[in-house]
Structures are given as C-alpha cells and as structure tokens.
C-alpha cells in the first residue's frame, strides 16, 4: 500500500502513571489499504475500544505513529491541531446502534457532516441523496429516523460515515443488533462502498456471522495486534 488508507506503527496507550499505570495498548501495528475492509477482533478488555478511540482521535495515544492517506497525523503527538476537523473530514464512523439524530430527516442526517464542513446546504443534500441512492434508501430520504427499520437506519448511518469521502471508516460492531441476513448485507454494503470510494474500513466485531467474510483480520490481545489472513468468504 502506498500513501493511502491508514497505517499505524507502534501505537501505545497508557492510562495513569507509576504503580497504577495500565497499558491498554502495548503495541499496535496495522495497515489497511484503500478499498479494503478488515476485521479487528478480540476478547473483551483486549483494547479494541481504546484502539478505536485512538484511531478516532478522541483520546490521545501515548506513543506511536499514525498515517492517514498521505498525511502523518500522529507521531508521538498529534500533528494536526484541529482534531474535530480531522474527525469530520477524514474519519467516518459507523456505530453499533445507528445513533442517527432523531430530529433530522434521513437526508439531513447524512448531509449534516458536509454542512458542518461549510458545504452549501443544497450541495450537501445532493451528495447525501447520491449516497442514499447508492445504499438503496433514497426512497426514505424524507423520513425521520424513527420511521425506518433497523437495517435502513444502519444504511443511513453508513451513508453518514461515507458522505465526506473519508480515507478511513471506523465501524464499531455495526452488525451486532442484526440477524445473519442483514448483518451480511451490511458487510456487503461496506465492501461495495470501500471499493467505490477507495475507503479503508476497520470493522471492530465479535460477530461470528461476519468474521469469515474478512480477507484480513487483526486480532488484538492484551493491547497488541496480530495480523492473520481471513477466510474471505463470498457474501453473494
């Protein structure tokens, strides 16, 4: 992989200091290419959420290096002053629950991110509608989140994660509340979107239904990652 996607080298996170210090992340090395969807799996307390928060720029790692696209964003310290803008423009998030904004309709839930970045409302909505079309939920564009099914809500959440065309999307247990068919449908969508938008997608999961679909998997144990090949089972 050259210059795109995300690369993490020797990332560490220590909570506390002295005798009470806890090393939540001891050494994380990862690399995800554009268009690639990888699985990040591990038992509870292994450091998955800490890693996700560090990659999402909501906690400060203790040491290491992160390169997003062509840009070094962390090298034993943040290299970007506006982490909020970093999260808005260069990192997409998909959560276990969709967490759509209940008082915005589907279109504006997706269009909100570009609007926050200063894109004119009409242009942001056009971009949102294009994504909703790609995700086959355009017919619900004017609906409120409470009027959508669980699967539709998750597709809207994926659209929101993609709308600013971020180089990386962090998906936290995106299929946990879904049955097998819908879970696989979500993974299919993530794969399609990753390839269409050349986005690197990291899926944190426990979900046995989807783990076999990943071509590459990072196991995280005791704060350290280990790469292994996945089964890459076809979803179609």
């Amino acid at each position: 992989m050259v210059g795109k996607g995300i690369r993490i080298e020797g990332l560490r996170k220590r909570y506390g200091s002295g005798d009470t210090a806890v090393d939540a992340l001891k050494r994380v090395d990862m690399q995800v290419a554009p268009g690639e969807v990888i699985g990040l799996i591990g038992p509870s307390g292994s450091g998955k959420s800490t890693l996700l928060k560090a990659l999402g720029a909501v906690i400060d790692p203790t040491a290491g290096r992160m390169i997003l696209g062509d840009e070094v964003i962390y090298d034993d310290g943040w290299k970007i002053s506006d982490l909020r803008a970093l999260r808005r423009d260069k990192i997409g998030f998909v959560f276990q629950a969709p967490y759509l904004i209940p008082f915005l309709d589907v279109t504006d839930n997706v269009a909100l991110l570009p609007m926050l970045a200063g894109t004119p409302n009409s242009e942001a909505r056009q971009r949102a509608l294009a994504l909703l079309r790609a995700l086959d939920v355009e017919h619900r564009a004017g609906a409120m989140p409470s009027q959508l099914s669980g699967g539709e809500q998750q597709r809207v959440a994926i659209a929101r994660g993609l709308v600013n065309h971020p180089p990386v999307i962090l998906a936290d247990e995106p299929t946990a509340p879904l049955d097998s068919a819908r879970a696989l449908a979500v993974i299919r969508i993530l794969n399609d979107m990753a390839q269409r938008f050349e986005t690197a997608i990291i899926v944190v999961t426990h979900d046995e239904k989807i783990i076999p679909t990943f071509k590459r998997i990072y196991h995280i144990r005791d704060g350290a990652t280990h790469e292994e090949a996945g089964q890459g089972r076809s979803i179609d």
């Binding site: 999402g56 909501v58 909020r84 803008a85 999260r87 808005r88 423009d89 998030f93 959560f95 967490y99 904004i101 209940p102 909100l112 991110l113 926050l116 970045a117 929101r160």
Partner: peptide, 16 residues
Amino acid sequence: IREIAVLKLIGTRNRT
C-alpha cells in the same frame, strides 16, 4: 446526551 456525543464525534463545533 448520546446525540450530542455523536455530534461532537463527527466534528460538530462546541459553539454549534
């Protein structure tokens, strides 16, 4: 609270 956390995570400014 949850929506506010999501808004902040996706880059909404404090002043917004």
